[in-house]
């Protein structure tokens, strides 16, 4: 063992190094470490929160999608119903129109037939008068005997 003034020198060096370390080395490094730890902890917490939010949003989206699907199905159903209704209505309308047109046709035909009948009758009257004139070989006043002729026409 050879203790001497080296010890004092080393002691001074030791004290100086420790004080320097205490003032200029330890605080910035440990400060940086702790600040980073805090940043990381905050980041992890934020990511946790974000994951939870995402889960919630996904749940919400799923629910909304389901609702939208059911709504779409409802709308489709209603549209189909309406479609058949329209088709039925149109068919009914067409049927009615057809019947109306048919009826009108029939009526027209009837009127024309009556008209033709009337004309034929008149002509028959004229022919009959002419025939009678010829048969009697004398002039018969058509006006004087029109009541008889009319009776004849009505009998035809």
């Amino acid at each position: 063992m050879n203790l001497n003034m080296t010890l004092a020198g080393e002691l001074i060096a030791f004290i100086v190094f420790v004080m320097f370390c205490m003032k200029f080395v330890w605080p910035p490094i440990i400060g940086a470490i702790e600040a980073r730890q805090k940043t990381i902890a905050d980041g992890l917490a934020a990511s946790d929160r974000a994951a939870k939010d995402l889960e919630l949003a996904q749940e919400k989206a799923t629910a909304q999608l389901k609702e939208a699907k059911s709504q779409a199905a409802e709308i489709l159903e209603a549209a189909k119903k309406r479609e058949t209704q329209i088709v039925e209505e149109a068919a009914a309308k067409a049927q009615a129109e057809k019947e109306k047109i048919l009826a009108a046709g029939h009526a027209e035909i009837e009127t024309e037939r009556n008209q033709a009948k009337e004309e034929l009758r008149q002509q028959v009257a004229v022919l009959a008068v002419a025939g009678a004139e010829k048969i009697l070989e004398r002039s018969i006043d058509a006006a004087a005997h029109s009541d008889i002729l009319d009776k004849l026409v009505a009998e035809l």
Binding site: T6, V25, P28
Partner: peptide
């Protein structure tokens, strides 16, 4: 006074102090 002990220990102490100080100065969070 043991020059070698004192010299080497102070040299190594300075290596420690300067290395750590340079990191402390540029420490980024």
């Amino acid at each position: 006074v043991h020059i070698d002990t004192l010299g080497w220990s102070v040299f190594l102490g300075l290596v420690f102090i300067m290395l750590f100080r340079s990191v402390a100065k540029n420490a980024t969070t």
